[in-house]
Amino acid sequence: MRPFTYNRATDVAAAVEQVSLNKEAKFIAGGTNLLDLMKIDVMHPQHLVDITRLALNTIEDTANGGLRLGALVTNADTAYNEKVEQRYPLLSHAILAGASAQLRNKATDGGNLLQRTRCYYFYDKATPCNKREPGSGCSAKEGFNRIHAILGTSEHCIATHPSDMCVALAALEATVQVSGPNGDRAIPFADFHRLPGDTPHIDSNLKEDEIITAIELPAKGFEKNFTYLKLRDRQSYAFALVSVAAALDMDGNTIKEARIALGGVAHKPWRNTAAEEMLANQPATTENFRKVAETILQEAKGFKYNAFKIELAKRAIVRALQQAAKLEEGA
């Protein structure tokens, strides 16, 4: 780990200024990802601006009936917040499917969005990696790529975004509130994370000197028909091989609106709204679900060790929708 300087920011404007004036500075929140990466010298900011004391740690109702999650609320406090549990249970479930209790107590909602990939090569400086060292090559493409992406990959990077929380936020169509040197802006969730393209070292559309202040959830919470299904190599404390956030708005057995977001399959939480629309005003049947699943995975491309994810994702979508629609087992 390289030496770094540190200060604790007292307000948002000061924090933004400190980072915008110093190219080598970074915000640190829970530190559960950044600090790990600093210890192994994958990230090496020279200055850390600690934002944990900023007044961004509350969960509040918004004027339009939604909910505003302060960027520094911990993952645990979010998941167990009564309003979240009642109005956005999909989000609670997704958060609780991630990491461990200890990590969730420390990790913040803003940090969760910006956690970096778990690609083994990204974590090991002895191997080339375009995300870590642009232009050095992608070791995973021909290497051990069991946990890698099947959708939206590029020749430069096939990494996934590892978050569970973000998969639910994508389905719920949250907006990310950010503040920068030029003022505040809101980024729709679908536009927050990026595909790797030829700039895999850039994970999101947040600028280096912008801070996330909050995540806003719209009024619609899909609290009646939802599922977060996470498939992984052990029952807890493992990242998703494939995860599905399914949210349905139903009228009897008819689906009015369907949202399906996938985790573990792409560089960002994956949505295909055109495919989702196939379910609008359709009966909730396994057959219909399978059709949507086929459509969502149509463009998927597997690599040596992760081709199984394509069929797994399809089956996971079907199961998640069955559960969300409360279909009889096996119906």
Binding site: Y120, Y121, Y123, D124, A126, T127, S139, E142, G143, F144, R146
Partner: peptide, 13 residues
């Protein structure tokens, strides 16, 4: 898991 290109165990944490 050993990556044979590098002759290195990769999931080393």
């Amino acid at each position: 898991f050993m990556d044979h290109t590098f002759g290195r165990f990769m999931n080393h944490d």
